[in-house]
Design a protein around this nucleic acid. Structure first.
Length: 382
DNA sequence: AAACAGTTTTGCACCACAAGACTAT
DNA sequence: GCATAGTCTTGTGGTGCAAAACTGT
């Protein structure tokens, strides 16, 4: 499936692959294997040389580098595609459609000894070289990830400290935007996340794909984790979850790049909303930040090691990329009552207009009638 | 290939006011 | 510390407009 579907673009694979991770040893050739013992990515030549140096080295377990992103150790071998894929790419590629989901994949086995047989698919001329398997992993992505995360990516080799000028904030950034959707939905988010339409005929289409699956009732917009994924949440991730939510609810909906402040125009019943009373429940152990601030970086600064191992860097890049892929751009309604009120308010050319005395009187009459009928005051709860 | 005009897309400010947050007493 | 009153701040959506992007000549 990969080869067929990735034909035609001609972007990455043609010519030199400038975005693949380079060999940690020679810094020239694209890496092809990852040595766990050395925590190093090596090209074929260096791998052969390094691991033929002595008996101990020759027993190092190595795995192929993911043929999709060429930046992470492969974790699965897809028999249908004859491709070695890292966890992220495997999830991405094989969640694309039902057919892909049926591909038989097996955990990848280490490369034995020094016998060096190239992967079944040539990374350059193979499926990656033909088009974007993963549209979100492009050169820009790599540059961005590298500029944030890599201590000395090749492109920035002159400025080795560049990657970690911001210390712990890097990691905070990585965790700011968390996705809580089922992986199967990602394909749709990916497809439409960068189209910020705010015209009605487009909204309908967008809603088809990007409105979160609602397994919740009432107003809550807080997306519910897929059961399995939720169960696998570690404590650290749960902290990220809280951070992300606070960030989104307090800021991101409006200032986030690509925010579609106009793209969702559906009734309160159609769009999820955060119940006002629940906002304080999101971060249980998080004291309220001072007015007008975002309490993201308060508290003790996170410790960031001055030097990260290649594995750590890889993990961070992967986390960053995963989160970037799964960012959500739907507008989050924090106050359903305000939304409902806004929808009923009179407008002049789209702008809110002052209500006339007559309208106010009608409203008062309505509420008075309602009180008389029900026998008690009605607190609007939309 | 460059320049230009016309068309389409995108991003954002604007508005009023209820509700919540905050401050003073 | 608690209660109350007053003030300030926030969030909400449809429209119009300007700028950017795109298309055709």
């Amino acid at each position: 499936m990969l080869k067929e579907e990735t034909n035609g673009g001609g972007g990455k694979g043609t010519g030199a692959n400038t975005w693949a991770r380079v060999c940690d040893t020679c810094r020239a050739a694209a890496c092809t294997v990852y040595c766990r013992a050395d925590s190093a990515y090596l090209c074929t030549a260096c791998d052969a040389r390094v691991h033929a140096a002595n008996r101990v080295a020759s027993r190092h377990e190595r795995v192929w580098v993911c043929e999709a992103c060429e930046r992470a150790p492969a974790a699965f071998l897809c028999k249908a595609d004859a491709a070695s894929l890292c966890t992220a790419c495997d999830a991405d590629i094989h969640s694309a459609n039902p057919l892909a989901r049926r591909h038989h994949r097996v955990p990848i086995l280490p490369i034995s000894g020094s016998s060096h047989v190239p992967p079944a698919t040539d990374p350059v001329d193979g499926f990656l070289g033909q088009d974007d398997v993963d549209e979100t992993i492009d050169e820009e992505d790599e540059d961005e990830a590298a500029s944030w995360l890599l201590i000395n990516p090749v492109k920035n080799s002159n400025n080795q400290s560049n990657g970690f000028l911001f210390g712990g904030e890097v990691d905070e950034y990585l965790d700011l935007v968390e996705n809580y959707d089922c992986p199967d939905q990602n394909q749709f988010n990916d497809q439409y996340s960068h189209h910020h339409h705010h015209h009605h005929h487009q909204q309908a289409q967008q809603q088809l794909f990007s409105v979160p699956q609602k397994s919740y009732g009432g107003d809550s917009v807080v997306p519910v984790q897929c059961g399995e994924a939720k169960a696998q949440l570690h404590h650290h991730q749960q902290q990220d979850f809280q951070l992300g939510l606070e960030f989104e609810s307090s800021k991101a909906a409006y200032s986030y790049p690509g925010s579609i402040s106009h793209s969702v125009s559906v009734s309160s019943m159609d769009v999820g909303v955060v119940p006002e009373s629940s906002m304080s429940d999101i971060s249980i152990s998080h004291s309220r930040p001072p007015k007008g601030t975002i309490d993201l970086f308060s508290g003790p600064p996170l410790q960031m090691p001055a030097q990260l191992t290649p594995l750590d860097r890889e993990a961070r890049v992967l986390r960053y990329r995963e989160k970037k892929k799964t960012r959500k751009f739907e507008k989050t309604i924090r106050y359903a009552s305000r939304k409902a009120y806004a929808e009923t308010r009179p407008r002049i050319k789209g702008r809110f207009a002052k209500r006339t005395d007559v309208e106010v009187e009608v409203d008062q009459m309505f509420s008075t009638t309602l009180m008389a009928e029900t026998g008690y005051g009605v607190v609007p709860s939309f």
